[in-house]
Amino acid sequence: MSYFSDIYNGIKTLLTGMSVTGGYFIRARKGALTQQYPDNRETLKMFDRFRGEVIMPHDDVNEHRCTGCQKCEIACPNGTIEIIWDRGIDEETGKKKKKIDQHIYHLGMCTMCGLCIEACPTDAIVWAQNYENSVYDRTSLTKVLNQPGSKVKAGIED
């Protein structure tokens, strides 16, 4: 007797499960999340807070906001940020002042923890929302964030 009830139960539960999958088969496109990724690059937009990579924004006259205080370098857990700094003469006061020579960022080592951006007192570095970071050569993951010939915006103090 249990032989027949087993068969009955088997078919019944199979049909119960199939009713779920069958339901999706009929209304397949409703609520579908799949994106046609490489084809939708123009329309694909990441969220504002998405952590793609660290960048240093520059304005029209090639000025950034980094004073070279090295707080991001200290905050970084794995040595992703390296700052090579120098002392320059401040034009207004004539005193010696710290300035950055190169703000080096190793994207290959970055864990996207966000501690450097939290630590920055002048908002000199921010997150970029780009998401295609793979390259053929590892050395191109080391980036210098400040543009050549750039200098710190006047009046930025940490």
């Binding site: 999340l33 990441m46 969220f47 504002d48 807070r49 998405f50 996207m112 501690l115």
Partner: peptide, 30 residues
Amino acid sequence: RDRELINDIFEETCGARLTMNYNIPGGLMF
């Protein structure tokens, strides 16, 4: 499919989908 919706919530608020690092000692990062 359903987990993706949670990941979207995390990505919008914390900035990452899996390794959020949203807490800091003393509160939240933002």
